[in-house]
Structure formats: structure tokens, C-alpha cells
Deep mutational scan, measured.
Amino acid sequence: YIGSKISLISKAEIRYEGILYTIDTENSTVALAKVRSFGTEDRPTDRPIPPRDEVFEYIIFRGSDIKDLTVCE
């Protein structure tokens, strides 16, 4: 799965898409590269977040912050 395009939804209901870079089982983290944030879209939340235009080089997510993770390709 390393190198695959991943769609990830955080506990804050924010969806991110990026390339799976590393999975650290010891620290329970997932790192994505070339990440875009799509905001909360239409998911119900107390704090709606708009999508962002910039592409983040890397984002490291803690396993406890991840609600859903899907391989896109």
C-alpha cells in the first residue's frame, strides 16, 4: 500500500487525500505525502472546515485521530 493514493477522514470529520508514505506501527502513526485537505464537506460537525487549496508536503496522523481510511487506487 505504500505509494498508494489514500483518502483519510479524521475524527474532526476533515477529509484528506495523499500518497501513503509510511506506517509506523510502533507509534501508531500514518504519514501521507502531497496531501490535500477537503475540509468537512457535508459531514455533520460542530465546526465546519472549508477545503484548502495548498498541497502539504507531508502530514503525520496519529492512529487515534483517524476515523476512516480508504485506498483510492
Rank of each mutant, 00 (worst) to 15 (best):
V55F: 08
D24K: 00
I6V: 13
R52F: 05
R62A: 14
I23M: 12
E13I: 12
Y21P: 04
D68I: 07
T22R: 12
I60W: 09
I23V: 11
E13Q: 14
I66R: 00
K34I: 01
S4Y: 12
I60T: 14
I49T: 14
S4L: 04
K5E: 07
S28L: 08
I60K: 13
K5R: 12
V35L: 02
T70Y: 03
D68K: 14
I14N: 13
Y58Q: 15
V55C: 09
E73L: 07
F61G: 04
Y58L: 12
D65P: 01
T45P: 03
D68Q: 09
G39K: 01
C72R: 12
A33R: 15
R15A: 02
I9W: 10
V35C: 03
D24G: 07
E13P: 02
F38S: 02
T29C: 11
G3D: 01
A31N: 06
T70R: 10
S10Q: 03
A31C: 06
R62K: 06
S4W: 10
S37L: 08
S37H: 04
I66D: 12
R52T: 09
I23D: 03
I66L: 06
S37Q: 11
A12G: 08
Y21N: 14
D53S: 10
G39L: 06
T45C: 14
S37M: 14
G39E: 03
K5I: 10
V35S: 06
T45R: 03
T29W: 08
K67Y: 02
P44W: 12
E73Y: 13
E13F: 06
V30F: 14
T45Y: 03
S10A: 02
P50M: 09
Y58P: 02
A31T: 15
V30Q: 01
I19S: 07
G3A: 03
K11N: 05
T29Q: 14
G63H: 11
V71L: 11
N27S: 14
R15Q: 05
I9L: 08
R62I: 04
G18V: 06
I49G: 01
G39F: 04
G63Q: 15
P51N: 04
I59W: 05
K11M: 14
S4P: 04
D24E: 04
L20P: 01
I9S: 02
P51D: 04
D68S: 09
L69F: 13
V55M: 12
A31I: 12
P48I: 15
S7V: 12
E54P: 01
G63D: 15
D53W: 03
C72A: 13
R47D: 08
P50L: 11
S37F: 10
R47W: 10
L20F: 08
S4M: 07
A31S: 14
R15H: 08
E73D: 12
L69E: 03
V35M: 01
V55Q: 11
Y16E: 00
T25N: 15
S10M: 06
T25C: 06
R62V: 06
I59K: 15
S10V: 05
T29E: 14
D68M: 14
Y58F: 09
I2S: 08
I19Y: 05
G18K: 04
D46I: 04
D46H: 09
E73K: 04
V30G: 02
T25F: 08
D24M: 05
K5S: 08
T45V: 13
I6A: 09
S7Q: 07
R62G: 08
S37C: 08
Y21K: 13
G3E: 01
T40S: 08
R15M: 02
Y21A: 15
I14C: 13
P51G: 12
R36E: 05
T70F: 03
K11L: 12
L69M: 09
G18L: 05
